[in-house]
Write a protein that binds this DNA or RNA. Sequence first.
DNA 1: TTGTAGGCGTTATCAT
DNA 2: ATGATAACGCCTACAA
Lengths: 337, 337
Amino acid sequence: MPTIEDVARHAGLSRTTVSRVINDQPYVCDEKRQRVVGAMRDLGYVPNSSARRLRSQKTETIAILLPRITNPFFSHMIEAMEKKASEWGYQVIICQTHYSSQKELDYLELLRTKQVDGMIMTSVHNEWSAIEEYLPSGPIVLCNENIEEANTSIIYIDQQEAAYDATTHLIEQGCEKLAFLSGGMDSSIALSRRRGFMKAVQQYNVSFVEHDDFNQAVDVESGREIFQSIQQEDATIDGIFTGSDEVAAGIIYEAMNNGVSIPDDLAVVGFDNQTISKLMNPSITTVEQPVVEMAEKCVEILIQQIEQRGRHKREDYIFPHTLKKRTSTTKPMAIPM
Amino acid sequence: MPTIEDVARHAGLSRTTVSRVINDQPYVCDEKRQRVVGAMRDLGYVPNSSARRLRSQKTETIAILLPRITNPFFSHMIEAMEKKASEWGYQVIICQTHYSSQKELDYLELLRTKQVDGMIMTSVHNEWSAIEEYLPSGPIVLCNENIEEANTSIIYIDQQEAAYDATTHLIEQGCEKLAFLSGGMDSSIALSRRRGFMKAVQQYNVSFVEHDDFNQAVDVESGREIFQSIQQEDATIDGIFTGSDEVAAGIIYEAMNNGVSIPDDLAVVGFDNQTISKLMNPSITTVEQPVVEMAEKCVEILIQQIEQRGRHKREDYIFPHTLKKRTSTTKPMAIPM
DNA sequence: TTGTAGGCGTTATCAT
DNA sequence: ATGATAACGCCTACAA
């Protein structure tokens, strides 16, 4: 691998001059500039980025923390983030926590060891106080979860309102006994949604059922299991808020196979407006988030903070959500896709 | 940010000794070791990875090239790759080409500029001769596409055989007029599949239809469009090989909405055994690839090559595929999920 | 067992 | 306009 030194020698000039050419700086006459360019070509020279990083104290790289990339909500978010980052000339390192708080901390070390200039967290599995420790090492922007105590910029939708809207919709459709599902009550998102659910339930004085399993609903499989347990233990439930299109799909799949009619016997609401929610039959009523816009905004904020340096105070960016009403909650009729 | 020098001074020792402690090397007595550890703690020292990279000529980072992460086939593959890489202490940079050969080349530069130690390509949009140029800069392993001329290790399933199996299955189910769909005939995968399709069609002497649109089938939306055009132009087609569960889902969705019975009027085969293929109603017959195993093997091979250094000759790892027969091609009956 | 010193490849500062 | 030189922070012969 040729170095800048080799190029300089080959061109009969100094490293400084070569460096100037590499970085498009002035104060190099055309003739020498050509000589340098030629030498670089001859030797197949390419600047070593480790050396550049050391010298410039920048990596042009950001890390994105997320639970699992196979969750379509996150893969859509990452797709948009990577695209935007790439436009700005930044690399993206992907960090799957698999819901482990330890892995989350391990990945945060990337910030301290200066492997990345900044970080995006789409999920949070530690106390904020623990994460705050890393802020001096570089900017962190949150996207998706709304952590009350967080003293850094943050992007999210109003989960409480979204759950309230969805629950109200179930009630308006005539549901009288509801269930609230979530992926675990330790997340800020599930907590907010639960508040919204409870608000609607109390406001309309509708009854609801609780069960330990209801807070372990994470994928298609758990949706299927929960349907079975509901069938056996409390078949009078007639409306479910799932917080996930995959869970909703699992429930619907199992219901169809067991002769339970959706939405007549059981209405189901999903979350995230994933591809599957449109394709299922019946199609799934769901809450849509503007993932792409949120992702792009997030990257822009982060890169801005990186390039401005210095600490930044918290700013909240709250994006709008939309309830997509489909046939899993409403009587069948032509609804355009 | 404290440096190794600061720690050394604080502990009243030399940089060397501190370095030895950092890297768990022998020849440091316990007392001084403690002093160093204490000093690191006091100062909040953390080694700077840019400096380490420059010194060691290693980045402990690999890049994964793929078209789009939102394609579930790729997101499952990346999930497994990132997990495996992380176990080995490697970071993963994600590079979406969005099917652009230029972006592919841009990302390959990461290898030349030593931002990564190695690279995995899950799709290839340039002539192999162009990609070969990068091989001297670091190992590249292919995962998914089988490029004939490639002189590097490569992992794939037998796409031709898979398409042959799927097509034969359609024929066995009684289909008499087939169509072959793909995402574009410029990819090695589509070409292999077409060979398999043709082999079955000729062997059983079944007729088939061609159309320009048939090679633009990439997602749910295009599946829907293709169904519509088939309805209008050649409704006698009774069996379709799609090469994609999403395309298959789009076709089925549209067929159901238009009163065309699946599989009686039209049988459809997908590819990749994605979540959606089990959940659709009818469920989609599809070809399963052992994505996770392929991904893990790929990362292992790459890291091995990185750590052994030197050029490696091509080895082929061919993984087995399975045809999952479901209701989009077979008369309804109880098929366990 | 410990320390000294040189170099990894760049870029910025300061002369000339 | 060009060049010499000193960092950036770390690791490792080699010397002691």
